[in-house]
Amino acid sequence: MTPRIIQSKSILIVGLKDVLTFMTNGQGTGALARRFMPKRHQILNQVSDQKFSIQIYDQFDYNKISPKTEYIKWVGVEVSGFLNVPEGLETLKMESGKYAVFNYKGKPEGFLSAWQFIHENWLPSSGFTLDDRPHFEKLPEDYHPSNLEVEEEIWVPIV
């Protein structure tokens, strides 16, 4: 897996959030997505049809995470501005910065192996370090975890 290194602009998100752990991620993300998806068509100023799955950590240290590590999980879409945010949805501004962007294509259960490779192999040998900004995945419109093969972009904040 070889990433593209991208200098991202600020990204504005409208969506829903919850506090999850690595242990509750699968069930919690699914529940969050099921609450968000019916409302996404009410968002008028979407930039694209991609969905965002975002993780915000207090301090991310790959070597110290455990199944009980808590983080804020967002499910949402990118927008051009925060005008007319539908009732019940929230806003998030992700600051600009450098990201390593990995393309993942495979079975949904293979995502964890890709994520582990990024943090155990690629990052330590890359010359980059993690930045304290949100980690996220961009998912295509037709993404569904029950698909036999999924495609997504894994965005890792770096400096």
Rank of each mutant, 00 (worst) to 15 (best):
M1P: 15
M1C: 09
P3N: 11
S8V: 00
S10Q: 09
S10H: 07
I11Y: 02
V14D: 03
K17S: 15
D18V: 06
V19N: 14
L20P: 05
T24G: 01
N25I: 13
T29C: 09
T29I: 12
G30T: 14
G30W: 07
L32Q: 05
R34L: 06
R34P: 00
K39A: 07
K39L: 15
R40L: 13
Q42N: 12
I43Y: 04
L44K: 10
L44G: 09
Q46E: 10
Q46K: 15
S48F: 10
D49Q: 13
Q50S: 08
K51R: 13
S53K: 06
S53E: 14
S53R: 07
Q55I: 00
Y57C: 04
D58F: 00
Q59L: 07
Q59S: 13
F60G: 00
D61F: 07
K64M: 09
K64N: 13
I65Y: 06
P67V: 04
E70Q: 15
W74C: 03
V75R: 10
G76R: 02
G76T: 12
G81K: 13
N84W: 04
N84T: 00
G88M: 05
E90N: 11
E90S: 11
E90A: 07
K93N: 07
K93W: 00
M94R: 00
S96R: 10
S96F: 03
S96I: 01
S96D: 14
G97C: 06
Y99F: 12
Y99L: 04
V101Q: 08
P108R: 02
E109N: 10
E109F: 07
F111N: 01
L112N: 10
A114V: 02
A114S: 14
F117V: 06
I118D: 02
W122D: 09
S125W: 03
S126C: 11
S126E: 12
G127Y: 10
G127D: 12
T129F: 09
D132S: 09
R133N: 10
P134H: 05
F136P: 08
F136G: 04
E137Q: 12
K138G: 01
K138I: 08
S146L: 11
L148C: 04
L148D: 15
L148H: 11
E149G: 02
E149P: 03
V150G: 01
E151V: 04
I154C: 03
I154W: 03
I158L: 08
I158H: 01
